[in-house]
Amino acid sequence: MTELLKVEDLRITFPTRQGPREAVRGVSFTLGRERLGVVGESGSGKSQTGRALMGLTPPPGVATARTLSFDGQDLRGAGKRQWRALRGRRIAMVMQDPKYSLNPVMTVGRQISEALGRVGGLSSREKRAKALAMLEAVMIRDPERVYDSYPHELSGGMGQRAMIAMMLAPDPDLLIADEPTSALDVTVRIEVLRIMDRLVSERGMGLIFISHDLKLVSQFCDRVLVMYAGRVVEELAAADLASAQHPYTRGLMRCTPDLDHDLRPLPTLRRDAEWAK
């Protein structure tokens, strides 16, 4: 398998009044053209990891790493120009809530065309055609109407599909999906994930799927990283999840209710200060 992304010892530090605080503390992993799940509770640093891979650590935070390379390019200390060349065209990201991640005063079509504008060499008619094709690819039945809609006129599921269409339009090599369905209604989650999953495998892209839902991740990914307090506590193939070693992973597994067995009292997740060390 070709190596697409290699991360070694990624650290993200935020200055606070009590001195610098590390949100991510030495995360390492490699990724080929496969689907990697990153699981952890809120505050575990999984989203910050995803943003750091695009050079979008929000200031005043600082991301450092021993190795951070994408397709052979060293990204440590990459300048604005180098990052911009990668963003959109090579790495894209689907964010949590389309209600906030789509520009409210721009039509969906224009936002997709704008992403396509980064590819270069497309006339505006070609861009429109491509955008409409993309909207169709995410199973939107009436692409013309959605193209001319403003984001608030779409439901959450539709918005997220438009977001996926927008991010995949320039045909990137890696897609980071940061909790892509947690803002959506339960009924549409699986559908949106299926669409995303199909497009990712059709195009042979790498996928990093960030979520707090271990079950969901194990369904859609090949490998899973479990993060706790800014560290990777366990890394394993999705198929081996049942034989997870780390107590935190096992705890997460147990927390999911099961239809076949009566779980009473419901187990609670017990945390151990040792894990954060």
Binding site: G88, M95, L102, N103
Partner: peptide, 24 residues
């Protein structure tokens, strides 16, 4: 978030400021 999304798309900072943020 939509500004971050625009950055993700690789839009230039100038365009983000004048087209996306200022318009809002």
């Amino acid at each position: 978030e939509y500004v971050t999304a625009a950055r993700v798309k690789g839009i230039s900072e100038t365009r983000i400021i004048w087209r996306h943020a200022l318009r809002n």
